[in-house]
């Protein structure tokens, strides 16, 4: 676990007053973390509704959906999964480094996390582009030419796929934006105890995006019958 314990605050150079509504730093730290956890609960149910819709249609049209999944690029998605899981590790290392007050190390690990995130998005973008080229992107007026059986049902699969991966990509963009801000803050290195807490909260969000991707990967790519 990253060190977000109270001892860090006892060092004189780290001392910061809590915001006015809190009694002390510990209370503020606890509130911030709990706030992020509750927010993630909300996010979980946002994706949960989508996954429930997918699950119902997947059961209803088991064969067509399993067949359609073969037209997704499993290799690229597997690479992406590896990238994103690694970024979870580098994020954790950045938190540990900040907890140990190693500013430079923290900067490098944060940078690595951001680069891994960007690489994920680049590959995802390429994947979307190749689906567009194969005319498997049923968005707006784009032509949809699905070679398998029951193209109308397969279209449903691809629609859900683009909604789920699109919503996830939006979350990735938000996550990367947060990490860029954190990078700037860590480089500046004021109030390290506060940075420590903020990094931990940012890390929770990043970990959540990882977990959602694991579910998307499993549901859309691996359930191919």
């Amino acid at each position: 676990m990253p060190t977000s314990s109270g001892q860090a605050g006892t060092r004189p150079e780290d001392e910061t007053p809590p915001e006015t509504q809190f009694d002390d730093m510990d209370q503020q730290r606890h509130a911030g973390l709990l706030g992020m956890w509750v927010f993630l609960l909300t996010e979980l149910l946002l994706f949960g509704g989508l996954f429930a819709a997918f699950a119902i249609l997947r059961l209803q049209y088991a064969n067509v959906f399993a067949e359609a999944a073969h037209h997704l690029d499993l290799k690229l998605a597997a690479i992406n999964t590896a990238l994103l899981l690694s970024s979870g590790l580098t994020m954790m290392l950045a938190e540990l480094a900040a907890g140990a007050r190693l500013r430079k190390v923290a900067v490098y690990w944060l940078l690595a996390t951001i680069l891994l995130g960007l690489a994920f998005l680049a590959i995802k973008g390429f994947e979307w582009y190749s689906e567009f080229r194969h005319q498997l992107m049923p968005v707006l007026v784009l032509p949809f030419r699905y070679p398998g059986e029951q193209p109308a049902i397969a279209e449903l699969f691809f629609n859900l796929y683009f909604i789920a991966t699109g919503l996830h990509a939006v979350h990735m963009l938000v996550g990367i934006a947060i990490l860029v801000v954190m990078l700037a803050l860590v480089r500046r290195w004021r109030r390290p105890d506060r940075l420590d807490r903020q990094l931990h909260i940012a890390g929770l969000y990043w970990a959540f995006i990882d977990v959602v991707w694991v579910f998307i990967f499993t549901l859309f790519y691996l359930l191919r019958g």
């Binding site: 249609l57 209803q60 109308a152 049902i153 279209e155 449903l156 629609n159 859900l160 909604i163």
Partner: peptide, 12 residues
């Protein structure tokens, strides 16, 4: 025109 809720497009 995504058909997730539209029976004509396979939706429910």
């Amino acid at each position: 025109g995504i058909g997730i809720f539209d029976p004509a497009l396979g939706g429910d």
